[in-house]
Write a protein that binds this DNA or RNA. Sequence first.
DNA 1: CGACTGATGTCAGCCACAGACATCAACCTA
DNA 2: TAGGTTGATGTCTGTGGCTGACATCAGTCG
Lengths: 196, 196
Amino acid sequence: MMRWEPGARERLQAAALELFATRGFEQTTATDVAQAVGLTERTFFRHFRDKREVLFYGQDLFVEAFLNGVDAAPPDASPLEVIASAVHSAASFFPDERRPYSRMRQSVIEKNPALQEREQHKSAGLATTAAEALRSRGITEPAATLAAESGATVFGIAFAQWIREGEERSLATIAADVLRELQHLTTPAAASNKLR
Amino acid sequence: MMRWEPGARERLQAAALELFATRGFEQTTATDVAQAVGLTERTFFRHFRDKREVLFYGQDLFVEAFLNGVDAAPPDASPLEVIASAVHSAASFFPDERRPYSRMRQSVIEKNPALQEREQHKSAGLATTAAEALRSRGITEPAATLAAESGATVFGIAFAQWIREGEERSLATIAADVLRELQHLTTPAAASNKLR
DNA sequence: CGACTGATGTCAGCCACAGACATCAACCTA
DNA sequence: TAGGTTGATGTCTGTGGCTGACATCAGTCG
């Protein structure tokens, strides 16, 4: 007989999402979450650096997928082609089954500025490490940071669309469309009918 | 004879920057900052939503400058031209005299993740309002968000370079260079010597 | 002259979070 | 198999961020 149930971290994450969704983030104390799964506040903070982190723990896998996409690009690929590969790889980390969960999670985050800060911080961290990966491929600054940041932006826009009620396309499909828009952004004259 | 000295907010901001720079952000309590200028902790929190905000209060003017740049662009400008105008306008908000102050402030922020989160949140907020301004100019999604986010990124990269030790060029000059790099990003084939 | 306003102080309290130490089942080792 | 070790947890206690309620008092205005 074990002294404690296994999977404490996962149980805490599930309980936290549910409580945050019903009562709201600020109206839920860390003690509430811990007690909901038969643990104490102290144990909660042993698993998560702070109260917000319970919603973000585990993103390393997503970042890893993004970086794998960077490495998967052919060695002579342009910066934009590399981030295309990275965005595509990252997108496959969110299969359609995850959509309902992602929607719920995002609706919690949207309602709280403190959680938005954490999310933006994670996104910025992704861009930073992606820029480093691009640099190690020989891409120089500021192109590396520019490309990495654009990749994070493209993914963010695509993800927001993927989450939208009624959207049925896969994340990878949407992301590819957004990427195309980015390419058009800097070359609008060729697609436009007016000349300057 | 007045009961209290005027300019409480500004005095708090100055004292906070100094204390954060010497002792560190976490090692400085809100009470420390308040007492340094002869006020109480309660008064500190009446002027600033939270302890971090003392370093960010007043950015509205910067955001305003950015948006003025958006409005200043000719009505038939492309999204990229609009953000070029915005970035240029925002850059003029940081004349060279402000460089030492900005360096000090940024070195404090760099050393603390919580402060970085707040900074990224502000940057994201800027991109969001800029995207709205672009939309009201008739630019559709996702181009509006893409362009706004790119503008924020360009400014961020330029600002980081402007702050660097030894850098002498003006922020506007650097920003213009970074913007050029962004344009090259999505059209590398034309500038490169290899064809694909 | 008295009501009013606005920035501040005082007091009390909640909660996020952390250090120090105890507990106890599972495991390991002689 | 006795006894030490490990690792996740609980208990206790304290600090600091932040807030609501109320008091104070200089200057202002009617």
